[in-house]
C-alpha cells in the first residue's frame, strides 16, 4: 500500500503544493538523443514540453519544461519521478492505472504512489485534461519509438 493515507485531504494537498512549488525534473536540455513532445492543450494555457531519453527500452532520463496550472505542473512533476528507470511497458501500465483512477475505476495504488493525490480531480471535470497532460505526452513519446 501507499506510504501515506489517501483519505487525508491535507496530505494529498501537500503533495500537490510541494510539486507545484518545487517541480522535479523541470529543465530544458539541448540533446537530440532525447525524444521531445510538445503538449499544448487547445482549451487552456498549459504548454508543456517533455523530453525523454530511452535506452534499451528503459526510461533513463525525463525532463520537462513549459507553463502550466497547479494541477498540470504538479502532475507532470510526479509523473517524471514515477516513470524514471521503468521500462516502456511498466510506464504504459502506470499510465493505464492513472487513467483508470481519473475515471474512478479500479487501479493499483502502489504503482501510482504520489500521483494518487489527483484521485478527486474529476470533481472538476474540466481539469482532468490538466492532470493527464503529461501522461498523454508520454504516450506520444512512445509512439515515436
Amino acid at each position: 500500500m501507499s506510504t501515506f493515507d489517501i483519505t487525508n485531504p491535507v496530505i494529498l494537498r501537500e503533495i500537490i503544493m510541494d510539486h507545484y512549488s518545487n517541480p522535479r525534473n523541470k529543465k530544458e536540455i539541448d540533446d537530440p538523443s532525447f525524444i521531445l513532445v510538445h503538449m499544448d492543450s487547445a482549451s487552456c494555457i498549459d504548454d508543456i514540453y517533455i523530453q525523454v531519453k530511452i535506452v534499451n527500452n528503459i526510461i533513463k532520463k525525463i525532463y520537462w519544461h513549459g507553463e502550466g496550472c497547479a494541477i498540470s505542473t504538479a502532475s507532470t512533476s510526479i509523473m517524471s519521478e514515477l516513470v524514471i528507470n521503468k521500462s516502456v511497458e511498466e510506464a504504459k501500465n502506470i499510465i493505464h492505472n492513472f487513467y483508470n483512477m481519473l475515471e474512478s475505476k479500479e487501479f493499483d495504488h502502489d504503482l501510482l504512489d504520489e500521483a494518487i493525490c489527483f484521485i478527486n480531480v474529476n470533481r472538476q471535470p474540466s481539469r482532468i485534461t490538466c492532470a493527464n497532460i503529461s501522461y498523454r505526452g508520454l504516450e506520444k513519446v512512445f509512439e515515436k519509438l
Partner: peptide, 13 residues
C-alpha cells in the same frame, strides 16, 4: 502566485 485557471476553477466552486 496562483495560476489563472486554478483561480477560475476555485471561483466556480
Amino acid at each position: 502566485d496562483i495560476h489563472a485557471q486554478d483561480v477560475a476553477t476555485y471561483l466556480s466552486s
